[in-house]
Design a binder for these strands. Structure first.
Length: 134
DNA sequence: GCCAACGTTGGC
DNA sequence: GCCAACGTTGGC
């Protein structure tokens, strides 16, 4: 299984929107590197949902329920479908992640603008631990 | 609100 | 194919 992190501005689409709707088509990705990451996602991969700008924190874990297919609105690009898996006990903020040297290599820290990014299992596990106050 | 970092566009 | 100009993202 692989792990990912996707960003969204909460005013546009938030974790609570996903919880409410039970499922989302992740569209609007218009960056080639992000597109390649979307393409590499497999069913049941886990995705950390990060709120950019206002919150700057990871709020929940989603899972991929449908692998990439053409964006119905723009066939040149692709989308995936995700569903909520688990809400984090407490959100894990960017500040907290940056404060931990072991997470210094996270793409979130190194390449903050990439909207769909891979996460290592060790990084994923650490984020979960942090959300539980460990 | 500012600005650094990065991606994209388009003239040459 | 290079690179300057421009636009966008997102942290601060």
């Amino acid at each position: 299984m692989n792990y990912w992190l996707m960003k969204s501005e909460p005013s546009v689409y938030s974790w609570s929107d996903l919880e409410k709707e039970k499922k989302a088509t992740w569209d609007g990705v218009r960056n080639f590197q992000a597109r390649n990451n979307l393409k590499a996602m497999k069913k049941d991969d886990r995705v950390l949902l990060y709120h950019s700008n206002e919150d700057k924190a990871i709020f929940g874990i989603a899972k991929v329920i449908k692998e990439n297919y053409p964006d119905p609105g723009d066939k040149a690009w692709i989308v995936v479908d995700i569903a909520p898996e688990k809400k984090l006990k407490t959100p894990v903020s960017l500040a907290l992640i940056k404060a931990d040297k072991r997470l210094a290599d996270m793409v979130l820290v190194r390449s903050s603008r990439l909207s769909v990014q891979p996460v290592k299992k060790t990084e994923f596990d650490m984020v979960i631990n942090m959300s539980e106050g460990k």
